[in-house]
Amino acid sequence: MLAEAARQEFLAWLSHERRASPLTVEAYGRDIGAFLGFQTRHLGAEPDLAALAALTAADLRAWLADEAGDGKGNATRARHLSAVRSFFRWLARHHGVSNAQVALLATPRARKPLAKALSVTQAKAVAQDIGEVSDDAAIQARDTALFSLLYGSGLRIAEALALNVADAPLPGSDAMLRVIGKGAKERIVPVLPAVRSAIAAWLRHHPDRQPGAPLFLGARGERLNPGVAQRTLRNFRRLNGLPEHATPHALRHSFATHLLAAGADLRSIQDLLGHASLSTTQRYTSVETERLMEVWRKTHPRG
């Protein structure tokens, strides 16, 4: 049996026996067809089942390399390899065709997407003007304090919303804030005077200033839900034409990226963000490199 006939039989099995959706069957058929097309060119003739069983690790790596040369990313190649592995598992069960090299082939690792930071102007606009989303003075003060803190100190949204009134850094007090991050790991972060002033302004509207009360409250007097904060920023970015990646977490990315651009060292940024590993913080080096390359491309006479 030739490989194409086996592919058609596999797709029929996938559709009728496994009851896969038409879109899934189409995707598997396309991915496996591309693999078999490459092997036909690579081997000089359409492979039969014996040829598929005899494919070497070099033959398989050549296919992945060819896909990379066509501009397919690691995530796409990993998905294609998964489809091919499913095809070979079916071949082993239904036709006795075994090829251990397919299972042993290393899966391309998808790269983590680069953090998307806002520009300094955009981040400042969020921190300073987010209150314009609401007509309520108390909510305006609360949102300004919250988003100023996210950008000014690089907090995760969950970390900021977990704060209590007793944690609030105020003007004239210690400019440091104790934060409990992931894994209950504690870190100390500095708080800018503008942020402390914004928090003080919000506390003047706060209905319950007992030390154990949540610092940021929702409409019902309970701890503010992160979904509410996300919706507020979503509305603000639509009103002000900010990009879709303008989210609460993007302010944390912006905090780190802007510090790096201003000359801060990675180790200090790691401590401020509460990253357990420096490799996590090093992602911001890539972000800054991308920004510099974009400036170069736009401004260099030969860009």
Score class of each variant (00 low, 15 high):
G263P: 13
D208H: 00
A62G: 08
I139A: 14
L91T: 03
V102W: 12
R77H: 04
A175V: 07
Q282I: 00
K72S: 06
R111N: 06
L149K: 01
S82M: 03
E4C: 04
T285G: 07
G172D: 05
L146I: 02
A261R: 15
A12W: 02
G212W: 10
A51L: 08
Y284C: 10
A65G: 05
H300M: 10
R283P: 10
A51E: 08
A246G: 02
A141L: 10
W296R: 14
L161A: 02
S268R: 12
L118S: 00
A162Q: 15
L273W: 11
R18H: 05
P193F: 01
A256D: 09
V97E: 13
S148I: 04
L217P: 06
D265F: 05
L11S: 10
N225K: 00
N240E: 07
D167R: 09
A160S: 06
A34Q: 15
R209M: 12
N240A: 00
H275N: 09
F147C: 12
A92P: 07
R30F: 05
A115M: 10
V102R: 11
F255Q: 05
P113G: 11
L217V: 06
G44I: 04
A162G: 13
D136M: 11
A68P: 03
R204F: 00
N74P: 15
M1H: 11
D59Q: 09
L272M: 13
R111P: 08
E17G: 13
Q39K: 02
E290H: 05
R111E: 13
R187N: 12
V84L: 15
F88W: 15
L192K: 03
H245W: 03
F216Y: 07
R30G: 02
L163C: 14
R7H: 13
A168I: 11
T121N: 07
P169V: 08
A145R: 03
R178D: 07
T56Y: 03
W296P: 05
D208C: 01
A200D: 10
A256V: 06
R231C: 03
A65W: 00
L273C: 11
W90M: 04
R109E: 01
G152T: 00
F88A: 02
L260T: 12
S153V: 01
R220T: 02
L91Y: 08
L260Q: 12
K124R: 14
D31L: 01
A58L: 10
F255W: 02
V179Y: 06
T281R: 03
A92F: 06
